[in-house]
Design a protein around this nucleic acid. Structure first.
Lengths: 330, 330
DNA sequence: CTGAAAGCGCTTACAG
DNA sequence: CTGAAAGCGCTTACAG
């Protein structure tokens, strides 16, 4: 910028004015500055700008795994809102590791992102308190914060799971399995709670062999499914706790010689084309992301309301798998 | 930092040494500094650091749409490599708009990202020449750069499509349709070229009504598919140019009362569970991303070889839909 | 082992 | 309409 000013024969401030399209520059002066910019290949350094201005016009997003089909649309929605506010999005995957989540979130804060959207992997976010006190806007999405008071945008995991399981009960099932993510994860716990509520509402005691929580890798899920589907009293229906689990259970059911009902949490692409179609409790990942990001920018605009928990409804989509009748008793 | 130095009764440089774990500080001094840091809630400002050091330890990724299942794993792979090199990833979606691609790429350069991984939407990247000259490492992935010489990591679109179509020909098909993305997009053009090559190798003249290129939104694709599947001489097989097209064509075929063979470019989740299973020409999105990112960091390490084009092989996965025989002539 | 000075590339607040 | 000075929060190069 100094070179540009020298070449155009003007002061630093005038170059700054031209670069930032501020008023108060004669057309002739502006022309000279622009010419110098072009000749020298000047490119404004936004890092320096940021240092002076305070705001970086960037926000951070910490999620579990960018490659998961649930987080793609969510991430895109956050990006879109950021774009509307002139901000860039820095993205990081925690791989469901609390330490990595913290490392990422703090790295983003050190870069002085204006705000943070977090899909937490851990359940203790006190490490963020100094950052939030220092003015970093923070919104949790998909799962709430742990041990601190912060905005959260969630799907109705409890209600959605309860409705899905009640749907199976209404179809005549009594032995219904639940396969979900690790219990430490808020959504997994809530969905299990929904399952238990629906069973209790129906007066069906839950046999604990019907319930399996743990990592969602195909091996673990497959074993869990095979176990509850074998033996003298197998389940006649399964409720799956998220899209990763659903996909694996679908593979297990495809190998089975009898129909087993299935309702899955999260919609899955092509779920309508399978036979039977896959009945799901759908959540709106993009709306989740958009709502969280808008809330973030509202914080940044100074509309500093008290932290709030926003819960978005889920929607049961019947496609066939959830409407299969229980096999006749043997 | 100034406050920390004052409180600890040391110089600025000593604080800097402690913060950066540089050697040459007595344990006692370090203790005093750390205590001041804790008391004051000091958080190093990486923006300032960046301004002084030159490198920002961040790279940019410009892609088409974070929500597309093809780009999720690619993005994740780039992020993973960035992480291995201590860098953060700034992500942006061009929405397949060349202007938006340019705007994003230049915004990332203004933030002084160390490097740029670009899935181009446009076909003229001369706007990047000043940036590259200024030292921004740049690698194109999935599609090559236009009008500039730059590294590119691509899948073998031509060979993959040719093999896929040849597979249909080997199964006895002669009237084979091709539905792809807009012809301006390099991968679409290459895949069409592969289709034509396979047809020519088989001595089958291509009826231009069998070929449809355009946007991949469901409406356009559906109309194209319905058109080539109707009339007196419908196609007996379809080759689809990417995962978005495949998904829509699968829906059209499901409504049909006769079997039509299908081979799709890109693997799709649950493609193995449909009946028939979906035969695809799979590319490895994660490997594409990883290769591009590694190439980028090699550029940054100064191993400045001449720009190169790396082409990764595709893999034909037979699952049933591509092995359907043509309906007997009426 | 420790620190004072200069500077990274901008913007802010002010004066002319 | 225009510009000189000071400063954002760090690091570099140097001296003690």
């Amino acid at each position: 910028m100094k070179d540009v000013a020298a070449r155009a024969g003007v002061g630093l401030k005038t170059v700054s004015r031209v670069v930032n399209a501020e008023p108060g520059v004669t057309p002739e002066t502006e022309r000279r500055v622009r010419e110098a910019i072009a000749a020298l290949g000047f490119r404004r350094n936004d890092s320096a700008r940021v240092l002076r201005k305070g705001r970086t016009a960037s926000i951070g997003l910490v999620l579990e795994d960018l490659a998961d089909p649930f987080y793609g649309p969510l991430s895109r929605a956050v990006e879109e809102v950021a774009r509307e506010h002139g901000a860039l999005l820095i993205n990081g995957s925690s791989a469901e590791d609390p330490d990595r989540e913290q490392e990422l979130a703090l790295a983003l804060c050190a870069r002085r992102v204006d705000g943070l959207v977090i899909i937490p992997a851990g359940d203790d976010h006190r490490y963020l308190e100094p950052e939030m006190a220092a003015g970093v806007a923070t919104v949790f999405v998909d799962r709430p914060a742990g041990r601190i008071d912060a905005d959260a945008v969630l799907s109705d995991s409890f209600g959605g799971a309860r409705d899905g399981v009640a749907h199976l009960v209404a179809g005549g099932h009594r032995r219904i399995g639940f396969i979900g993510d690790r219990p430490r994860i808020h959504t997994a716990a809530e969905r299990l709670r929904g399952y238990r509520a629906a069973m209790e509402d129906a007066g069906i005691p839950v046999d604990e062999r019907w319930v399996s929580l743990g990592v969602t890798d195909p091996g673990r899920v497959r074993r869990a499914a095979e176990e509850m589907l074998s033996g003298p009293d197998p389940v006649t229906a399964v409720f799956t706790g998220n899209n990763r689990v659903t996909v694996t259970v679908l593979r297990v059911l495809a190998e089975l010689d009898r129909p087993v009902a299935l309702v899955g949490f999260d919609d899955i692409e092509l779920g309508d084309l399978l036979r039977p179609g896959v009945t799901v409790v759908a959540q709106d990942a993009a709306l989740l992301g958009r709502t969280a990001a808008e809330r973030l920018f509202r914080q940044l605009d100074g509309a500093a309301a008290a932290p709030e928990r926003i819960v978005l409804p889920t929607r049961l989509i019947e496609r066939g798998s959830g409407e299969l009748s229980p096999a006749p008793a043997r």
